[in-house]
Nucleic acid binder design. Structure first.
Lengths: 195, 195
DNA sequence: AAATTAAGCGTACGATCGTTCGTACGTATT
DNA sequence: AATACGTACGAACGATCGTACGCTTAATTT
């Protein structure tokens, strides 16, 4: 642990920048993020922002990491209070629906907004987004597996069920983005069927 | 119907441009489409391309229309050979999976790639993409309704089932894009469960 | 035959992009 | 006290963006 006040100040600036960058990227996308735009929004100099991240790609990766932490805080961590197995699966899903319904990010789900943009574009950004997706699917599958072990059968194949749940949640996010009023209804009914 | 050779030539050029634009947009997105890039790729002048579409937004809308036609030709029209009801639902889905598996567009599903980018961005482009999504969902729901009418029960609520199917298909497209080898397997197993 | 229309090109415009300099100022290290 | 390091800035770089204007060429209309 370093206590260097210079790097501490830099770290604070990086946090402020990526926090705002997450909001921008959830609406306009990671690839449309611009250093100049962030600098203007935060009343900083363009070169100041550029120096702190060395390159746009590093800024994108830092933004992804900030979004990941916010997602963990809002969706995953609270659900860890629920006991393993089907209860935790339900808690995770409820949290996820709330995360999309009262959007944590102004553009809705950060991953739903950005993964489709990069899924055909190899590189570190795509890799980071894919890792996050896989971690989420693994988390779901792990808890489904626990449920199966405890006799609370909610799906024969844990991976497949996780994929299934994620598909429905992601589609619900899109529907909400498009202003379909019954999107929350639909996802809840489908999830109830699935579990 | 006009037979003016000048406008016919323009129409041909527009077709050539939007055909390429669809490919580019399926990989890099509609918002990253650039007039200069298309002109270079097609050995035309930038101003020539610009003149034919008057504005970038018009180019985007024309690109969407071209993608829509290609989608109809590849997915919808062939499935109309199947009798109405569950058979046509299955045909539509099979065609859709093929459309994603041996991609009609190099970036995979055009809609899956572009809708998330515009779903938080009001405007004509978002509206056009949303219309296409709704038409696809309506098409599915209509056939599911027919199936229900004929006693081939595949879902109590046609709209909800259409939403459900589309969610799984879209997720499969993303998984394929990310190179997950068992994505086609997964979607087929899930669809079989659902129908 | 003259005027109009559309495609298409060349050029230029202002704006924004990511990146790279040199510099200034404060902190940490030696 | 001298040196090195990190933040932050202003300025400038070449590139690309969308758009607009003027022009030529060819087809159509009057």
């Amino acid at each position: 642990m370093t206590t260097d006040q210079r790097v501490a100040r830099g770290a604070r600036s990086r946090v402020a920048i990526t926090r705002h960058a997450v909001d921008v990227a959830s609406v306009e996308g990671l690839s449309e993020l611009s250093i100049g735009r962030l600098a203007t929004d935060l009343a900083m100099s363009k070169s100041g922002v550029a120096t702190l991240f060395r390159s746009k790609e590093q800024l994108q990766l830092a933004t992804i990491e900030t979004a990941r932490q916010a997602f963990l805080d809002a969706v995953v961590r609270p659900a860890l209070d629920a006991p393993q197995g089907s209860a935790r699966v339900r808690a995770l899903i409820e949290r996820w629906i709330a995360y999309a319904e009262q959007p944590l990010f102004p553009g809705g789900c950060f991953w739903a907004a950005n993964l489709p943009v990069f899924d055909s574009r190899p590189g570190p950004v795509r890799d980071a987004l894919q890792r996050q997706r896989q971690a989420w699917l693994d988390l779901l599958a792990e808890q489904i597996q626990h449920a199966a072990h405890a006799g609370e059968a909610i799906g024969r194949d844990a991976d497949l069920t996780a994929f299934h749940l994620d598909a429905v949640l992601t589609a619900a996010n899109t529907a909400m983005r498009l202003g379909e009023p019954d999107a929350a209804d639909k996802v809840r009914r489908l999830i109830d069927e699935l579990l």
